[in-house]
Design a protein around this nucleic acid. Structure first.
Length: 592
RNA sequence: GGCCUCGUAGCUCAGAGGAUAGAGCAACCGCCUCCUAAGCGGUAGGUCGGCGGUUCGAAUCCGCCCGAGGUCGCCA
């Protein structure tokens, strides 16, 4: 069974295979009457034990089944051990602790992963768990009123890596950007651009308080002059506002797309908030809710504690989000009759649902935390609980330089844009560092430390593993050894078995499992941490060769052994490459 | 005051309900005639914020406190 390592052309997870063995063992015990029928096996897991001394894999089956089976856990474990001890690939099965069953595998099972990796290349670890599921990942969605600043970078990187991760796990993924071009902020943008237009026409710009003062609007003003000449001068706002707004918004979006491209992010779809207005889509979404009795005219309780100064009770149009777990119902109309931000957002999510996505993910800044419940409520209501919405909140990035906090201030001109970051440290470093923390933990970003070329810097540590593998393969080729994947895949892996080699191949074998765990949890940072561990095992093994030449990868007098070890090196490199690929980081072949 | 996120080694952080809680940095002790020392090994370091509860088993799930940040009708 364990040698049937592939299924449907895709590599299978060794842990999944062993779990299948365990489940098969349970089935045989059940058939033999040693276990009652109808047991729920959902909680049975097969995992690498924390302590390697406990064996290769451990299952909790006996402890999970003890209560429903009304048996002592160690008795179940003993029976299961007996059923599994002769299973193919299993060397021993021992009962331990409160009822763990520790399994030891023939090392050949572990090393058998290597040819799978070589055959699949950097596709090794791709999963089918998401097959047939369409996921929409909405991220960045920065207001189209200026260039992207550093605060947007984390969300951009996180969303893109999450999308890559889900795609690797078999989902059909759409990366989407919601353009907030429907609110008052784009009118402000238009007025700001208009002043720059006046400036381009030789007049003194009047950039009042509240307008956007940034230099990036100067070329927009010049472009407006090129397009309109002086036709917009001395005209009332109603004359030019809509046109200038569209022109400026387009210019801002062009700039943002360039920013994203510099970071290596490419969206599949840009969705304009404005396109929801005047097309009946907001009304239709709210009508859908109204038809379910979820829209009503009513009065809201004032918030607890300190009241806003201008609070006065008012009847307004409300969405009954409390029916879906929100703390209070939420207004969809402002007092002037216009929509609140929430209304088009409801329509936008309704649109996503109607496009047929099976799952929605919104990546937002932590300051939007208060928005999560109502949006989940809206999606649950609109999809009748069919489509889950997961909202991932990204915490702040704290900037440092040389260990000192880096104060940002628009006024002082120390406003840090995404471009500033990319220009200084490059997209690969930026991306990797942003992914070395959970999304909901704050992150420190030190311009000096992230560029440090040492093991203290996880980016270089992982990159170096890839480069070092490349260097070893290069050396081998220079020594006259064949290093193509076909030759390596055919190597006699029975020659492997040193402790460091086993540790490394075990880590490689964990890759498909890590992908599935990370994808299920929507946590790309797990990939970054896994890569660091993999790199560590590889660097350690490489170092063994320094202490004992017999353990070097390249043994010129023993080509067969060299090929086996080079196969391991190459497999490591391919997994590093695959992992970096998910994170959107370019693997380096050389780092001198 | 309500809600959200967080609280793990001196520091920065991992940790799908599993066994004696891990990694990096900092500290201390070592390792290059050598496939990249841009690296590797060892020592030391903990009432997992606190108290209860659920469970065979809790850093993990639930409740209540304490602390940090965010947020709270007509901003997006």
């Amino acid at each position: 069974m364990l040698t049937a390592a592939r299924s449907g052309g895709r590599t299978m997870d060794l842990f999944a295979q062993v779990k299948a063995l365990v489940l098969d063992g349970i089935a045989r015990l059940t058939a033999a009457g040693q276990l009652p029928a109808g047991l729920d096996l959902a909680a049975v897991t097969v995992e690498p034990p924390r302590d390697p001394a406990h064996g290769d894999m451990a299952t909790n089956a006996a402890m999970v089944l003890a209560r429903p089976a009304r048996m002592a856990p160690r008795d179940i474990a003993a029976a299961l051990a007996d059923a599994l001890k002769d299973a193919p690939g299993v060397v021993s099965a021992e009962v331990a602790g409160p009822g763990f069953l520790n399994l030891r595998l023939d090392p050949a099972q572990w090393f058998g992963v290597i040819p799978q990796v070589l055959a699949a290349g950097s596709d090794f670890g791709r999963s089918e768990t998401g097959a047939g599921r369409r996921v929409n990942v909405e991220f960045v969605s920065a207001n189209p009123t200026g260039p992207m600043h550093v605060g947007h970078v984390r969300g951009a990187v996180f969303g893109d890596a999450l999308a890559g991760l889900l795609a690797f796990a078999g989902h059909e993924v759409t990366r989407e950007y919601y353009i907030n071009d429907g609110g008052a902020q784009v009118d402000v943008l238009a007025r700001s651009a208009y002043e720059r237009y006046r400036e381009a026409c030789g007049l003194e710009p009047a950039i009042a308080e509240g307008l956007y003062p940034g230099d990036y609007l100067i070329p927009v003003g010049e472009a407006l002059k090129a397009k309109y000449g002086d036709r917009l001068l001395d005209k009332g706002e109603q004359y030019w506002l809509a046109e200038v707004r569209e022109f400026a918004t387009d210019a801002m979006m062009a700039m943002i797309r360039e920013d994203l491209a510099a970071l290596g992010v490419e969206m599949d779809h840009y969705f304009s908030e404005r396109s929801l207005y005047g097309t009946g889509q907001i009304e239709a979404a709210l009508a859908t809710l109204a038809a379910r009795g979820l829209i009503y005219e009513g009065m809201l309780e004032p918030p607890k504690g300190k009241l806003p100064e201008d609070w006065e009770p008012r009847e307004q149009t409300l969405f009954r989000s409390t029916a879906f777990g929100d703390d209070t119902d939420r207004p969809v109309k402002k007092s002037d009759g216009g929509w609140t931000y929430f209304a088009p957002d409801i329509a936008y999510h309704f649109n996503k649902i109607e496009r047929g996505f099976d799952e929605l993910i919104d990546v937002l800044g932590a300051d939007h935390g208060g928005y999560v419940k109502r949006m989940k409520a809206a999606v649950a209501a609109l999809s009748e609980n069919r489509v889950p919405l997961d909202v991932k909140l990204c915490q702040l990035v704290r900037l440092f330089k040389g260990g000192e906090p880096f104060k940002m201030s628009k006024r002082a001109g120390t406003f840090v844009t995404l471009r500033d970051v990319i220009d200084q440290v490059g997209p690969d470093v930026t991306r990797f560092v942003m992914l070395t923390r959970k999304n909901d933990a704050p992150l420190d970003f030190d311009f000096d430390k992230v560029l440090e070329q040492s093991k203290d810097n996880p980016v270089f540590y992982v990159q170096y593993a890839h480069a070092r593998a490349q260097s070893v393969l290069q050396r081998a080729a220079e020594a006259g050894l064949a290093t193509d994947d076909g030759t390596l895949a055919a190597a006699d892996l029975g020659r492997l078995g040193a402790p460091g080699e086993l540790a490394l191949v075990r880590k490689i074998a964990e890759w498909p499992r890590q992908v599935e765990i990370a994808a299920a949890a929507h946590e790309p940072h797990r990939i970054a941490f896994y890569l660091h561990e993999l790199a560590s095992d590889f660097h350690a093994l490489q170092h063994q060769g320094k202490l004992d030449p017999a353990l070097r990868f390249i043994r010129e007098k023993d080509p067969a052994l060299s090929h086996a070890r080079l196969a391991l090196v190459r497999a490591t490199q391919l997994v590093v490459k695959a992992g970096l690929g998910i994170l959107g980081v370019t693997p380096m072949d050389e780092m001198r």
